[in-house]
Simulated scan of single mutants.
Amino acid sequence: MSTSNPSSSWIAQFKPGERVEVSSNDPGFRGSWFAGTVIRREENNPNRYVVEYDQLYEDESGEKLLQETLDWIQLRPPPPPPEKKKVQFKFGDEVEAFHSNGWWEGAIIAEHSGGKFAVFLRGSKEQIVFEEKDLRYDNFREF
C-alpha cells in the first residue's frame, strides 16, 4: 500500500489560456460550475490558479470580468462538445442544467411536453423546468 499523499499524486496542471469550469464553495453556489479561462498559476503556491470568468462580473455595471484565485480542486476541464446525434434525456438522469450563467448539478424528476424537463437542482434545492438545449449529461459524476 502506498503511503504517498493522495493530493500530491494527482494535481491538475492547467496552463494560462486554458478553458476551465469553476466550482464554488460559497453558500448558494454549491453544485454549480461556471466557465472561465486560466490567467496564471500562483508562483508561491502551485496548487492555486487565477481564473477569469466568462460571464461573472466584479460589480453590477458588468464592465470588468471577475477574476478569482482558486484551489486546483475547484477546477475541471470543460466537457467535450455534445455529440451530433440527438440526446434522449429521461426521468432519473443525472444532468447539469444551464441556469444563471452556470451549469448546476441535478436530476431530471419529470418529463414535460415540447422537449422540456423538470430538474431538481441539488445545490439550491430548487425544481426548475428547462428546455432540452439547456441540459447536458453530468459527465463528471463518477469522480
Rank of each mutant, 00 (worst) to 15 (best):
F14T: 03
F143E: 08
I109W: 08
F14Q: 07
D26M: 07
R41I: 13
Q13H: 01
Q88I: 14
G123P: 10
R136A: 04
A118E: 14
P78H: 09
Q55W: 09
Q67P: 02
R30D: 02
M1R: 06
K133S: 14
N25E: 12
E63R: 09
D54R: 09
S61Y: 01
E131A: 11
A12G: 02
E58I: 02
K116V: 04
R30F: 03
K85F: 01
K15S: 03
M1V: 03
G17R: 10
K133T: 13
P46C: 00
G62S: 06
S61N: 09
S124M: 11
V87R: 15
D93L: 07
L70R: 15
I39Y: 09
S2I: 11
L70C: 10
E142V: 04
R40L: 07
K90V: 08
V51G: 10
E96A: 07
R141N: 05
P27C: 01
Y137P: 10
V38L: 00
F143A: 07
N139C: 11
V22E: 06
W10N: 09
Q67D: 03
G114N: 07
W72E: 14
R122W: 09
K90S: 15
A97M: 10
G36T: 12
I128V: 15
K133R: 14
E96V: 07
S113P: 00
K85V: 01
F29D: 11
G106R: 13
D54T: 02
R40A: 12
S124N: 08
S8T: 15
E18C: 01
G62D: 04
E132W: 02
V51I: 15
E42Q: 05
A97P: 03
K15A: 02
K86L: 12
R30W: 03
D26H: 08
N25M: 07
E126P: 06
G17K: 10
F29A: 11
E60T: 04
F120Y: 15
E94N: 13
I108A: 11
D26C: 04
D54Y: 05
Y137G: 07
W103T: 00
R48L: 13
G28M: 08
E60Q: 06
N47E: 13
F140D: 04
V129M: 10
Q88F: 09
A12S: 08
S23Y: 02
V51K: 06
S24E: 10
V22Y: 06
R136S: 06
N25P: 03
V22P: 07
W103Y: 04
F140C: 01
P80L: 08
